[in-house]
Each structure stands twice: as structure tokens, then as C-alpha cells.
Amino acid sequence: MARVREISSGRKPLKRAYVAMFLWFTGRAIQAAAKADNQVKSEFEALPENFTFSLGCLPDGPWMVVGKKNGVVKYLGGKLPEKQHVRLAIKNLDAGFLILSFQESTALATTRNRLVTDGEVPYALAVIRILDIVEVYLLPKIIASLAVKRYPKHWSVARKLKGRIAIYTRALLGL
């Protein structure tokens, strides 16, 4: 007769590394966009001082944390702080991979119940808007137009091009 076997869940080191890398990059890109893009800048200005939010995967990461201190937006690394205003938690690593490999946009993933949002709604909405704009900068149009509901046609070429170069450079250099 068959017996019950006790099994421990395996690991997914490659997916984890990929997700961690893209979270790191997204975090730095948000930091960069807060300087290079006026809309992101004003979204952050409307948020309270010491505002902190995180994006990452359940049950235990990887995470990225972005916060605002003395009016400056900074990527704060991958460790969850004790207190934060908004936490966007992707329900599992594989869903995280779908989102961060841009097979599913943040907006689409939200409507597919892939994320759990903790925190006050107005703050969470601001974070989603910021992520949307950053996605437009980071991704080629063909992918980004799938990722956001309305691809910003009204942005000037200059905003797109300059913004994109600035954000990529700053994100990579960590400025």
C-alpha cells in the first residue's frame, strides 16, 4: 500500500534572482524618475514626509523599498521596514516573475487578484500611478502600451526621450 511522504517545498533560485534584480532596478528607476519626471515628482510631493512603500513577493521576498526623506525620494534597499504606508505584495514568486518580466502589467496584475494592497487607498493609488509612469519610461512602447491602460500619446517626444535617457542613466548609476 502507498504511504504518505512528507515533502519540503523546493526552491526557485533563478526566478528569485531575476525578480530581485528587477525589483532593484525598478526601485532605482523610481528614485530617478522622481528627479527626472515632473509628474512623478509632483505625485511624491503630495505624499507625506517619510512616506515609505514596498513592492515584492509573499511569503518572504524579494522586496524593494522606496521612501521619501527630507523631500528626497530614495531607493531604500530590499529589507522590509517595520512600518510603511503602502505595501504591494505579490501573492507568490511566480506571479512576481510574470509582472517583472512584463508579461503582466501592474494594473493587469491588480485586476487579476495577483497583488494584495495594504495601506490607505489614496496612497496606494498614488503608488500605482507612479509605477505606471515608470513602466512607460522603462519599456519600449509596444510593451508599455499593453502594460498601461492608456499609453500617454500626449507626452512630447522630448519628455519621453529625455526622461527615458535620464531615468536609465540615473537608475544604473544610482543617482
Binding site: T111, P122, L125, R150
Partner: peptide, 13 residues
């Protein structure tokens, strides 16, 4: 209305 979560699920931005 910008502070209300229902906007997330509306088809158009």
C-alpha cells in the same frame, strides 16, 4: 475621485 480605489478597475484610464 482620484483618491477612490474604483478607478483601478475601470477599463479606460
Amino acid at each position: 475621485a482620484l483618491l477612490d480605489g474604483a478607478s483601478v478597475y475601470n477599463p479606460e484610464e
